[in-house]
């Protein structure tokens, strides 16, 4: 234990530093004085939008070495004025949660566990299955002879955090392939 000194008395420190409310220099430790926000270490700050509800709060993404180190509210946003709710404030963990699945997994028919697949193999397998399902359930005409030009063998259900540009390509590709059972959380 350090030797007793009257200079260390809180009241003395408060009076000396003219810290009326005792919330300023009087209670500041060297450790505190040397603390720096982790945002200072960022290589760049990117303006983004919160991915949870539809209020559309502005986010600032702090990046260091191609990793997200912090996400906070964007005070410039006229919608959110810098605020985030518990979900938006936790969204750094959406990026960095330890349980995030970063590799492709495959479960074969009747399989009891996952297997790993490389990207190229997986994409080729999906492409082949897509074409086969499309063929298996193709319909040229309905029962009254009207053209339908479609496949009923493929369906899709998307969430509502898929970008407009992504939805656009999804709709365009599936429609051109003749798949009509294309749905979204917006129905649910």
């Amino acid at each position: 234990m350090a030797r007793f000194s009257v200079l260390g008395w809180p009241v003395f420190r408060q009076a000396k530093s003219k810290d009326k409310l005792g919330r300023g220099p009087a209670v500041e430790s060297p450790k505190y004085a040397n603390m720096r926000p982790r945002t200072e270490d960022a290589d760049k700050v990117v303006q983004s939008v919160c991915p949870y509800c539809a209020v559309g709060c502005g986010q600032r993404i702090y990046v260091k070495d191609d990793e997200v180190i912090h996400i906070e509210g964007d005070p410039d946003s006229p919608i959110s004025r810098g605020r985030l709710c518990p979900k938006g404030a936790a969204s750094e963990q959406l990026v960095n949660t330890p349980v995030r699945q970063k590799t492709i997994l495959y479960r074969r028919p009747y399989g009891t566990d996952w297997e790993e697949l490389d990207l190229e193999t997986a994409m080729e397998m999906i492409t082949e299955r897509f074409l086969e399902a499309r063929r298996n359930h193709w319909e040229d005409f309905d029962e009254h002879g009207s053209p339908v030009n479609r496949t009923m063998g493929i369906a899709s259900l998307g969430g509502a955090t898929i970008d407009n540009e992504e939805n656009y390509l999804i709709k365009k590709l599936f429609s051109a392939a003749g798949a009509v059972q294309i749905e979204n959380q917006a129905r649910i």
């Binding site: 559309g56 996400i71 997994l105 495959y106």
Partner: peptide, 27 residues
């Protein structure tokens, strides 16, 4: 499990910080 014929491909997705694009909010 052993009787289910369904093949499942799990393809990991990029999140909102890892791609550019637009969201349309509620207004």
């Amino acid at each position: 499990t052993e009787d289910i014929a369904t093949e499942v491909f799990f393809m990991p997705a990029a999140n909102h910080t890892e791609k550019a694009g637009t969201f349309t909010q509620t207004q």
